[in-house]
Structures are given as C-alpha cells and as structure tokens.
Computed example of a mutant assay.
Amino acid sequence: MTITEVSDKFEIPQDTLRYYERIGLIPHVNRKKSGVRDYTEEDCKWVEFIKCMRGAGLPIEVLIEYVTLFQQGDETIKARKELLIEQRKQLTAKMDDMKKTLERLDYKIDVYEKSVVEKEKELRRIET
C-alpha cells in the first residue's frame, strides 16, 4: 500500500506516518524502486497498534521503547509485558479520573437543567 492509502485507511496524516517511521515507531517500511513507500500488511498492523495506543494516551516514548524491545526478540517478552502492564495501570487511573469528571459534569448539567425548568415554571406563573 502507498502512504496515501495507509493514511486514508487509518485516518492518519501522511506527515504523521513519516514521523512515526523516522522515530522508529513503524519498523522499516520498504520502498519501491521509485522510492515510494510500500506498506506491507505487517506495517499496517504496526500503524493500527500505534493509532490505538496513542488514542488511549500512551506516550510516544513508551511506544518507542516497546517497538525497540520487540525488535530485540523474544528475550524481551517479559520487559514488554511489564511495560504494557504499567501503561494499563496508568490508563485505568486516567479512566477513573475521567469517570469522576463525567459524574461532576452530569451533576452540573442536572443543576442547570433544574434551574432552567424552575425558571420556565416561574415565567408561566407570572404570565397566567
């Protein structure tokens, strides 16, 4: 696949894909004789993984570390697992914080909704 096709498929700007490749998040992407990037299915799996992890808020530095460990082979499986477990803990904590924020927003919205309803009732009493 070309960079344009990968960009369209994953809704990631081409510049972002080039950046991910440059910093090592996407392992070496082959090129055609013309120099055009030729993404394989494996490359696309990396793009999908990175998009998912970035969408969840994992830092680029952590993902670089993960890819580096992956490229070192099976002797790094334990380190990769530990890295993912740590990120999962951090993501869970963020989700707990977000849940609290959501509850607070719901409360505030409810307060304003009740206020609007009361104002409308008051206006109707005055008009009648």
Rank of each mutant, 00 (worst) to 15 (best):
K89P: 14
I109R: 12
R80P: 00
L84H: 09
E103R: 05
L105K: 09
I85K: 10
M95E: 02
R88P: 13
K94R: 09
K94A: 02
Q90L: 13
Q87H: 10
K94S: 01
K100F: 02
I85S: 05
R88T: 11
D110M: 14
E75S: 11
Q87V: 07
L102R: 03
E82V: 00
E75K: 10
D97I: 10
A93H: 13
R104A: 13
K99Q: 12
Q71N: 11
K99L: 10
M98R: 00
M98P: 01
V67G: 05
L69Q: 03
D74T: 13
R80E: 00
R80Y: 01
Q72E: 07
D96W: 13
L91R: 05
L83G: 02
R80K: 02
L84I: 10
Y107P: 07
V67H: 03
D74E: 12
L83W: 01
E86L: 15
K108Q: 07
T68S: 08
E103W: 12
Q71I: 06
E82W: 01
T68V: 04
L91P: 15
K100W: 03
T68D: 07
I77R: 06
K108W: 07
D106V: 08
L105A: 11
D74L: 10
V67S: 03
R104M: 11
D74C: 11
R88V: 12
F70N: 13
Q90R: 14
Q87S: 12
E75Y: 11
Q90K: 14
E82D: 11
E82P: 02
D110V: 12
Q90Y: 14
E103Q: 11
